[in-house]
Amino acid sequence: MNWEPIILTAKLASVVSVILVIIGVPIAYWISFSKWRWKFLIEAVVALPLVLPPTVLGFYILVAISPNNLIGRLWVELFGATLPFSFSGLVIASVFYSLPFAVQPFASSFETVDRRLIEAAWTLGSSKVKTFFTIIIPLSVSGIITGIVLSFAHTLGEFGVVLMVGGNIPGVTRTVSIDIYDNVQALKYSEAASTAFFLLIVSFLILSIVYAVNRKVWSVWPQRF
């Protein structure tokens, strides 16, 4: 089995999960606690990658990050490298692609935190930031882990967006799913089969972790009163 695409994909998925924690948690917090009238529009935008074909998403991202357009040009001026068909370009595309898989579990776990606990913390003089880190986060651990693991797993298995934005470059953008596709075209069925089986096992393990984590948390700390 060729390990290069597997290591590359693991790196991509790790980077994307970290970025999604950093930008996903604030978005989820805002979605959970904002009272803005048009909030549902933002929620719809966050959920878009769930229903959009990867080619649509891939096409828009490719156009946006192309050196012929504003974002791509800015990137070239800042870092001296073009974004499409690079690892960084792939990271950007995957962040959009996996956004709902992080934000939705985060937001739903924030929403299940008992409002009375949060308000009690506020009345006791705790700042919003302190309340967030000492009340909301500890009570949402399962949701946060679920979000991280799901976005990791989702990035691991992405294909269409990677093919459009990454373009199958060995060691740079050839992820596991593209490698399997490539092996099938090269009539290397046994290699495709072993990589596919590896991915199947990994995905199963990851999902088992998600369900195990959620179950354990429910039985130890009942969140619903």
């Binding site: 693991a10 790790s14 980077v15 999960s17 924690v21 986060i137 500890p138 651990v141 946060i144 991280i148």
Partner: peptide, 14 residues
Amino acid sequence: MKIIIYCLLLTAYC
């Protein structure tokens, strides 16, 4: 919380 920090450090290392 600690688990999350460890996860972050590990992925950052990757």
